[in-house]
Amino acid sequence: MTPRGRRRTGMVRPYTPAEGHAAPTRRSLDLATILIADRDMPLHGLSPHAYRVMEHCLPGALSVAEVSADLQLPGAVTKVLAAHLVDSGHLIARNPAPAAQKHDRALLERILNALQQL
């Protein structure tokens, strides 16, 4: 239990890091979208929350849903922040791509195999 830690959340209201916008600049961001940080991009000049997102994504790829949960930010705020960071080139977004891959037998077979082996 982390009573001390948890009481930090809610200090910063969602509209502050989102600069009052509920809609991200990129509509395509999904909760299952994978975010990949560009390690070469400079981090100075970022807002504190954009910095937190970058800092959290630098060690490895994570979905929007996970970043949202880890940083205890509502999905809307995470999407707004992530969209700005994708726009600025700090993040690369990979959407769940079933539309193109739904009929990709190879992918489905690999998924099936992996599930059976789990």
């Binding site: 969602p14 509209y15 989102a18 009052g20 509920a22 809609a23 991200p24 509502p74 809307a76 999407k79």
Partner: peptide, 21 residues
Amino acid sequence: IDEMNKVPEATAFQQGLMNID
């Protein structure tokens, strides 16, 4: 916050919640 987590992002409702907050 609860409502924000219940409704999809990027909707007018979310924007409304932010405007109320």
